[in-house]
Amino acid sequence: VFVDDHLLEKVLELNAKGEKRLIKTWSRRSTIVPEMVGHTIAVYNGKQHVPVYITENMVGHKLGEFAP
């Protein structure tokens, strides 16, 4: 499973602090992992960042699938 390192670091850091804030990313190719559930990730679609709230059903899919 591929997840960009910088994105995973941000998610794990927020989980350690117990925070839930918006994470901006250009990494549409990253796979959604269970650690991301409950976070809102702003995924770049080529024009703007689209906020995507991550749920359990999204695990295993790519971030780009949810930012048309």
Rank of each mutant, 00 (worst) to 15 (best):
V1I: 14
V1Q: 13
V1T: 10
V1D: 15
V1G: 15
F2N: 06
F2Y: 12
F2H: 10
F2Q: 05
V3M: 03
V3R: 01
V3F: 03
D4E: 09
D4C: 09
D4N: 06
D4R: 00
D4Q: 03
D5G: 15
D5M: 15
L7C: 02
L7M: 03
L7R: 00
L7W: 01
L7P: 01
L7S: 01
L7I: 04
L8S: 02
L8I: 08
L8H: 03
L8V: 04
L8E: 02
E9A: 15
E9C: 15
K10F: 09
K10R: 12
K10G: 05
V11M: 03
V11P: 00
V11S: 01
V11R: 00
V11W: 01
V11A: 01
L12D: 04
L12G: 04
L12T: 08
L12N: 10
E13G: 07
E13F: 08
E13D: 08
E13P: 00
E13M: 07
L14N: 04
L14G: 05
L14R: 02
N15Y: 02
N15G: 02
N15R: 03
A16S: 11
A16W: 06
A16H: 08
K17C: 11
K17F: 06
K17D: 05
K17W: 06
K17Y: 07
K17N: 09
G18V: 03
E19Y: 07
E19I: 14
E19D: 08
E19C: 11
K20W: 06
K20G: 02
K20M: 07
K20L: 10
K20S: 05
R21A: 14
R21N: 10
R21L: 12
L22Q: 07
L22V: 13
L22K: 06
L22Y: 06
L22D: 05
I23V: 09
I23M: 04
K24L: 13
K24W: 15
K24C: 15
K24Q: 08
K24P: 07
K24M: 13
K24I: 12
T25P: 01
T25S: 05
W26K: 11
W26I: 05
W26G: 07
W26N: 14
W26R: 09
S27Q: 04
S27W: 07
S27N: 04
S27D: 03
S27T: 03
R28E: 02
R28N: 04
R29A: 13
R29K: 14
R29N: 08
S30P: 02
S30N: 02
T31R: 08
T31D: 08
T31Y: 15
T31H: 15
I32D: 00
I32E: 00
I32L: 05
I32V: 12
V33I: 15
V33T: 08
V33K: 04
V33C: 10
V33F: 05
P34K: 14
P34M: 15
P34Y: 14
P34V: 14
E35T: 09
E35M: 12
M36E: 00
M36K: 00
M36R: 00
M36P: 00
M36N: 00
M36V: 01
M36T: 01
V37F: 14
V37Y: 10
V37D: 04
V37T: 12
V37C: 13
V37K: 12
G38D: 13
G38P: 00
G38T: 08
G38L: 08
G38R: 07
G38F: 10
G38H: 11
H39D: 00
H39K: 02
T40M: 10
T40Q: 09
T40G: 05
T40F: 07
I41E: 00
I41G: 00
I41R: 00
I41L: 06
I41S: 00
I41D: 00
I41M: 06
A42L: 06
A42T: 03
A42W: 04
V43A: 03
Y44Q: 03
Y44E: 02
Y44S: 04
Y44C: 08
N45K: 07
N45V: 06
N45P: 02
G46N: 07
G46K: 09
G46M: 11
G46L: 11
G46I: 05
K47N: 10
K47S: 10
K47A: 11
K47M: 10
K47I: 14
K47Y: 11
Q48I: 11
Q48C: 15
H49G: 06
H49Y: 15
H49T: 03
V50S: 09
V50N: 12
V50C: 13
P51R: 13
P51Y: 06
P51G: 07
P51A: 13
V52I: 14
V52L: 10
V52W: 03
V52A: 05
V52R: 05
Y53E: 11
Y53H: 10
Y53M: 11
Y53S: 11
I54N: 00
I54S: 00
I54W: 00
I54H: 00
I54Q: 00
T55F: 11
T55N: 10
T55Q: 14
T55M: 14
T55E: 14
E56W: 14
E56M: 14
E56T: 13
N57T: 11
N57Y: 12
N57S: 14
N57W: 13
M58S: 07
V59M: 10
G60S: 10
G60L: 12
H61G: 08
H61S: 10
H61F: 15
K62F: 09
L63P: 00
L63D: 00
L63I: 06
L63Y: 01
L63F: 07
G64E: 09
G64A: 10
G64W: 14
G64F: 11
E65P: 05
E65W: 09
E65K: 14
E65Q: 13
E65A: 10
F66I: 06
F66K: 04
F66Q: 06
F66T: 04
F66Y: 12
A67M: 04
A67D: 04
A67Y: 03
P68E: 09
P68N: 07
P68L: 10
P68F: 10
P68H: 08
